[in-house]
Amino acid sequence: MNAATERAIQIGILVVILGGWQIGTMTGLIDVFFFPAPLDIGTQIASWVADTSFYRHVGITLTETVLGYLIGTGLGVAAGVWLGLSRSAARILDPFIKGLNAIPRVVLAPIFVLWLGLGLWSKVALAVTLVFFITFFNAMQGVREVNPVVLSNARILGANRRDLLRHVYFPAAASWILSSLRTSVGFAVVGAIIGEYLGSSAGLGYLIAQAEGNFDATGVFAGIIILSIFVLLIDTVLNVVEKRLITWRPSAGEERPA
């Protein structure tokens, strides 16, 4: 099947679903109170996008996401590489890490609001707690799975500890870390949105919470769609970054079987 027919089928599926939904709401088969008409959702999105104050909300959510993401992944990589290299530290800290990771993050949101207020930082903190552990476990695994022969080779060639870190451990862990960076983006957004949803005065999560407060299902659906577009855009950026950073790995198509 070639790309054009696949694309045509995809569009066909979309048209059938949205068309059926629209017709259903118009004939009264679907209750618009629960499932607002696609055209109304479209109109809502269009009116938001046309309004400048909407971009303030997007900007705030984006700032929280990016800050939470950078701080969380930065701490996660540092801690993961450290504990990956130091077995004894890893063994000592293991129960604490497992315990902390077991806490459902949502319950932390009110505590962060208490500590950091209703502003930006309580949301960033929530995003950090979500992102940190994913990156942390991946970085630790990546460092531990360094090929021992490659490591011995580098040591015999005269690498000191810093050389090993820079030229062996980090690059070896890089593909693990990068794959976790992709997954973490979604979690950074989730952290920011939940934080906003539970208590804030701005952001996409706040928009959705407000629409919900008014029983405005159209607004909720529009918010959800905006959010998924938001995550897709960030993911696309990361995809490009990953391709740039890891040039040494065979890409999916040119992988050799042995």
Binding site: N153, L157, G158
Partner: peptide, 29 residues
């Protein structure tokens, strides 16, 4: 520091090109 070892297994750094791998020992020095 004064040993050259040709391993039985693949021991090149996969994230470095042929030339970068070759110059590694000199870089560490």
């Amino acid at each position: 520091g004064n040993i050259g070892y040709l391993f039985q297994q693949d021991a090149l750094l996969p994230w470095k090109t042929a030339i970068e791998n070759t110059e590694l020992g000199l870089m560490f020095r």
